[in-house]
């Protein structure tokens, strides 16, 4: 649905995008992750036709971006990070106006506007001026505005970053509800959100794709389990940690007080050996746990290795 090949975007000496390549298949919810300034917004703006790449190719819904921008607008819905509206309009008028632009008939518009206002929970505010809206209301209206024409591709730039927890849940639920209807590309720097709704994740740093894979595979490949144990006696735990460091199946050991954190080279062996080793040392453990790392750990790990390169 979205093809990006070796995209470069330079602002003077700054390389916002430095050879970005990505593929978004139809029907997926693609989480576009990266630290601030990694080039997420630039990429989305290029995909909407608002910005032009310095070099490289990109196509959305089968339309090459170097060609007609107007044909593109019928296929995409775009929610900018800070959606902006005419303050003198009401949400009803604004959505109706967009419906007109997309060639909907009068009856279609009435139905669609009502449907969308209900969807984003703005039905009651439908006749108030947008000028007085809160940030969260604008975000939800922006979401409705991007959906007016039932686009095949939805581009969302940090759709939940500015919202409070309840608003965030609402919008994430909305995105999840769209999974069947269209392809979604959403950027974010908040990993928990992406982890929740996206089934494919692309991580970018410094204008380049670091890794792109289905979420599950990403977790399996990059997320090595971590073992954590809380003991009684910090000194005994320290001795145990020193002992563990010499084992072949241990990659790294970290001690903090009476807590030992072990990263394993060989997870299967570690599962067997760790407990045995603790028992042999006659350690008293209050807690022993195998942790699944969050996407955040994976992300940090990847971005750090990228930074080292």
């Amino acid at each position: 649905m979205i093809q990006v090949e070796n995209l470069h975007k330079h602002y003077g000496a700054v390389h916002a995008l430095d050879g970005l390549t990505m593929t978004v298949k139809p029907g997926v919810v693609y989480g576009f992750l990266g630290p601030n300034g990694a080039g997420k917004t630039t990429t989305l703006r290029i995909l909407t036709g608002l910005a032009r790449p310095t070099s490289g190719r990109a196509s959305v819904a089968g339309i090459d971006l170097s060609s007609d921008g107007r044909a593109l607008s019928r296929h995409i819905g775009y929610l900018p990070e800070e959606p902006a509206f005419y303050p003198w309009m009401t949400p009803r008028e604004f959505l109706d106006y967009l419906g007109r632009l997309h060639g909907l008939s009068s009856t279609q518009r009435t139905a669609r506007v009502k449907e969308l206002l209900d969807l984003v929970n703005l039905a009651e505010a439908g006749k108030r001026r947008i000028g007085g809206f809160s940030r969260g209301m604008r975000q939800r209206l922006g979401f409705a505005a991007a959906l007016v024409h039932r686009p095949e591709v939805l581009l969302l730039d940090e759709p939940v970053s500015a919202l409070d927890p309840s608003g965030r849940k609402e919008v994430l639920d909305l995105i999840e509800g769209l999974r069947e209807q269209c392809t979604v590309l959403m950027s974010s720097h908040i990993l928990a959100d992406v982890e929740r709704v996206c089934n494919v994740v692309g991580i970018i740093a410094k204008g380049r794709m670091v890794v792109q894979s289905p979420r599950e595979m990403l977790m399996e490949r990059y997320a090595q389990p971590v073992f954590e144990a809380d003991g009684e006696d910090p000194l005994a735990m320290k001795r145990w940690a020193d002992l563990l460091k010499r084992q072949k199946w241990v990659a790294a050991v970290a001690v903090a007080g009476a807590t030992v954190r072990v990263t394993a080279n060989d997870v299967v062996l570690a599962r067997h050996e760790l407990m045995a080793s603790a028992a042999a040392q006659e350690l008293v453990l209050r807690r022993y746990e195998e942790l699944r790392p969050s996407l955040e750990d994976v992300f940090l790990q990847l971005v750090e290795t990228e930074a080292v390169k």
Binding site: L50, I76, P80, A84, L98, L101, G142
Partner: peptide
């Protein structure tokens, strides 16, 4: 400045 231009130009407005 306000961002409405960007908003509208992603809809069918040349």
């Amino acid at each position: 400045e306000r961002g409405t231009a960007a908003m509208m130009l992603t809809h069918p407005v040349s």
